[in-house]
């Protein structure tokens, strides 16, 4: 579980790298799950709506029209324990992403490019894929 912002993404890559390199069986057997805390909370008439992506937020904003209050979660620390339970922890309601390895070789290569010690291939990757990036913190 990490913050839902880009720094959370960074932590996620670091943790996944750690599990993949040093506790590979955990990954292989599918024991690694990514928790999905929400990115925004929209409040209207004391009812809360959670958005997990910018697109969801935009949809909600259209849905709710005016007079809503929006809160961006910059970190898990901003949530009350109850909220965290509601949105992220409650098995009945939460969304979990289970990490699985379909192509171990491809995954291995991805880790080498992204987290390896050579800068050049990393930059090439970023340049090639720059337009696919989403959730930017601008």
């Amino acid at each position: 579980m990490a913050d839902a912002d880009v720094d959370g993404s960074h932590i996620r890559t670091l943790l996944l790298t750690f599990f993949f390199r040093f506790m590979k069986p955990l990954v292989e057997q599918g024991h690694i799950y990514l928790a999905q805390p929400p990115l925004y909370r929209l409040t209207k008439n004391k009812k809360h709506y959670y958005a997990y992506t910018d697109r969801e937020r935009d949809n909600l904003m259209v849905q709710l029209q005016n007079s809503y209050e929006i809160q961006q979660y910059k970190g898990l620390g901003e949530m009350d324990p109850e909220q965290l339970w509601e949105t992220t922890m409650d098995p009945a309601r939460r969304l979990m992403l289970r990490v699985e390895v379909e192509d171990a070789a491809a995954a291995d290569e991805a880790f080498t490019v992204l987290m390896g010690d050579k800068v050049e291939p990393r930059r090439e990757f970023i340049e090639q894929n720059a337009k696919f990036a989403e959730n930017l913190d601008v």
């Binding site: 009945a92 939460r94 289970r98 930017l136």
Partner: peptide, 27 residues
């Protein structure tokens, strides 16, 4: 739970990495 979605490790790491790296670069 029905709300478990499988994600491919390679894709997930690339996505997470790109989100981070691009936002660091651009902003």
């Amino acid at each position: 739970s029905s709300r478990v979605v499988n994600v491919e490790l390679e894709k997930e790491i690339k996505k997470a990495f790109l989100a981070y790296s691009m936002s660091v670069i651009v902003s």
